[in-house]
Design a protein around this nucleic acid. Structure first.
Lengths: 148, 148
DNA sequence: TAAATTCCTACTTGGTTAGTCTGAATATAT
DNA sequence: ATATATTCAGACTAACCAAGTAGGAATTTA
């Protein structure tokens, strides 16, 4: 569960690379990060469409970040490669599950979405690119749900 | 991203059903929860292997919870249907990504795993089966990561 | 002994992910 | 100018996995 697609992993690695090199061609990123060249081309295209990177075409062109990495949230990146986070369909559509007990689980899924979203919004690209970044040792998630 | 497989959704719905009915046949659960019969059979088999439910074979048999729903964590359920939560392969194997900057993102993924795990462990089946269950309105996830 | 049930194994099917291929458009270095 | 290095675009393919089916065997009770 929660297997993150390689596309997103590649995207993040590429962006981290750009944090450190300022500017780089697809080929150089692909080699340094061992990402299939043509695949990475497509991925950077998506990141460009999402406004996270800027491309310079032609000889001695390449990619660079569209803004400071402190201003790029990981939620931005994930949204760029995969769209919104919706653990379960019934968070959008209001079909069967609204009616019966079948959708008692709905608030639970919604809580999961909130927790994941909050985490992704709490981390910036700049932080990831910094070698010292570490998750905190201990804390209970318990406070993030209220009982009815 | 984070699309939860229907198998897991079905598993949870089935378990919630068992919280409320005490005991039920696959057929009755399948009908009430609109889950494909044969598929649900397989799913309940997994839940049984995981020790979450108990089966009674033969006529007037069925399934019931193996223990009180207060003692069943949602992490138990998810683990039963999908195994461990590993957003990214390199959280297990220590290959390429350990070496170079390629795996600067690793702590980030680890943090995600921790956040999700913590949430799933913070909610019990009993709570989900209760109509009043609701995620809390506001709180920052920021406290769950430390900067290096 | 018939009916209702769990259990087991194999199969099918559709969609998604991951990646390739070919080549066009564009800009620069020389 | 022209060769070269790059981004860009779209179709295509292969492999995998989720989702669900099919058929029947094993088991227990009414």
């Amino acid at each position: 569960m929660f297997q993150v697609p390689t596309k997103t992993q590649y995207a993040i690695r590429a962006l981290v690379h750009l944090v450190r090199t300022k500017s780089a061609s697809v080929a150089s990123i692909a080699e340094a990060q061992r990402i299939p060249l043509k695949y990475l081309e497509a991925i950077l295209g998506q990141l460009k469409s999402a406004g996270l990177v800027v491309a310079v075409r032609g000889r001695s062109g390449g990619y660079r970040l569209a803004r400071d990495p402190e201003l790029i949230l990981m939620s931005d990146v994930v949204r760029a490669t995969e769209g919104e986070i919706t653990p379960v369909g019934c968070l959008d559509d209001a079909g069967f599950c609204m009616v019966s007990e079948a959708c008692l689980p709905r608030p639970f899924w919604f809580g999961l979405k909130r927790v994941v979203d909050a985490y992704l919004e709490s981390v910036t690209l700049a932080e990831i690119a910094e070698p010292g970044f570490l998750p905190a040792p201990e804390s209970s998630q318990r406070d993030f749900v209220a009982r009815g």
